[in-house]
Amino acid sequence: MTDVEHHYAQLSDVLMHYVTAGQGPQTLVLLHGYPQSWYCWSEVIDRLGDRFRIIAPDLRGLGDTSRPVSGYDKKTIAGDVRELLHDHLGITQYAVAGHDWGGTVAFSLAADDAEHVTHLAVVDVAIPGDGNPNIGAGGKRWHHTFLLTPDLPEALIGGREDIYFNWFFDNYGHRPDVISAEARAEYLRTHAALGSLRTGFAYYRAVEQDVRDNQSRSEKLQMPCLAVGGTAKWGRGGEVAASLRTMAVEVEELLVDDCGHWVPEEQPDILSEALANFIEA
C-alpha cells in the first residue's frame, strides 16, 4: 500500500484538506466528485504512488475541507486548487485528472492555468457549456433537476443521508458492491458535518454559472486531454469525449467495459494504467 499523508492548507477562502503520496518525477493532481472525497482515489493512488507525486484535495465544501456559504461555481473551486498548488505547495507544472464534478473543476483549472497544466483527464462527466442544455443526460440523471430546488432536498434527505447516498452507490456502478463498506462509511462520515448537504447540492445549483463561464472562453484547450467513460448502465460512455471535444483540440478517448459511473473505484487497474501511459507518453 502507498502511504498517504494528510495536510491542511489555510487558503484565501477555505481551509483545505488534502493528501499527498508518492515521490515520482511528475505531479499528478486528482480531483474527486460528489458525493465522495479524496478517498475515491485510494486504489489509484496505491497503483501510481511509485510513478508520480500525487496530490488529492477535498474540494470546497466536501470531505474535510471547510464549507463556506458561496463559491461553488467550478471556476472558483478550481481557483482554490490553483492556490493550493502555486501559493501553498510551490508547484508550477502538473497533470490533473478529475472524476464527476472533479472533472468539471479539472477542466476549469486547465482552462485558467493552461500554461502550467501539462495534461488533463476527465472521467465520466460532461462539461457544462458544451452545447447541451444541461449535463443531466436529458433527465436520465433525475437528481440533477431535483437538487436545483431550494431547501426541499435538504429537508427530505437530512437525517436520511445513508438511504439517499447508498442508493447511488448501489445503482450507479456496474454492480451494487463496487463501493466498499469502508468507503461508504468514510463518505457518510463527511456528510454528517453541519452544512454538508447544502454545500454538496451547491455544486448542482451553480451549473448555470458554469455554463456561462465555459462558454465565455474563446479558445479551446491546447494540452493533451483524455476522456474516460464507463460503458455500463449510468456510465457516460462516449458522451465524455464528445463533450470535451467541443472545448479541446486534442482528445484521446478511453471506454471502460464492466464499469458504470464510479470509474476510480470500479476499474482502478485500467484507469491507473491509462493515466500513467497518457501522462508519461
Results as ranks from 00 to 15, higher is better:
residue 93 Q to R: 15
residue 58 D to W: 06
residue 91 I to D: 05
residue 82 R to P: 00
residue 62 L to R: 07
residue 75 K to E: 05
residue 78 A to H: 03
residue 83 E to T: 08
residue 74 K to Q: 13
residue 93 Q to E: 15
residue 79 G to D: 02
residue 91 I to F: 00
residue 88 H to C: 09
residue 62 L to V: 04
residue 62 L to H: 09
residue 75 K to V: 04
residue 87 D to M: 01
residue 81 V to Y: 00
residue 57 P to T: 13
residue 99 H to C: 10
residue 69 V to T: 15
residue 80 D to V: 01
residue 59 L to Q: 15
residue 65 T to E: 06
residue 82 R to F: 10
residue 60 R to T: 07
residue 70 S to Y: 03
residue 87 D to K: 11
residue 97 A to K: 02
residue 56 A to F: 07
residue 72 Y to D: 04
residue 90 G to Y: 01
residue 76 T to D: 03
residue 55 I to M: 10
residue 64 D to Q: 14
residue 71 G to R: 11
residue 73 D to K: 03
residue 68 P to G: 14
residue 72 Y to S: 05
residue 97 A to L: 03
residue 63 G to H: 04
residue 67 R to W: 12
residue 70 S to G: 07
residue 60 R to S: 13
residue 97 A to I: 05
residue 72 Y to K: 02
residue 82 R to H: 13
residue 90 G to C: 02
residue 82 R to T: 04
residue 89 L to E: 01
residue 80 D to L: 01
residue 67 R to Q: 13
residue 55 I to A: 09
residue 85 L to H: 02
residue 92 T to D: 14
residue 56 A to T: 09
residue 78 A to T: 00
residue 95 A to K: 02
residue 70 S to T: 15
residue 83 E to I: 03
residue 95 A to D: 07
residue 80 D to P: 03
residue 64 D to C: 05
residue 66 S to G: 11
residue 81 V to K: 00
residue 76 T to R: 10
residue 64 D to A: 14
residue 58 D to F: 07
residue 80 D to W: 06
residue 57 P to G: 08
residue 99 H to E: 08
residue 79 G to K: 01
residue 89 L to K: 05
residue 97 A to Y: 01
residue 93 Q to N: 14
residue 58 D to K: 04
residue 92 T to M: 03
residue 89 L to I: 04
residue 96 V to R: 02
residue 61 G to H: 11
residue 81 V to F: 01
residue 92 T to A: 04
residue 57 P to I: 08
residue 64 D to H: 11
residue 56 A to L: 07
residue 94 Y to S: 10
residue 83 E to V: 01
residue 91 I to C: 09
residue 57 P to N: 12
residue 76 T to A: 11
residue 63 G to F: 08
residue 80 D to R: 01
residue 84 L to T: 02
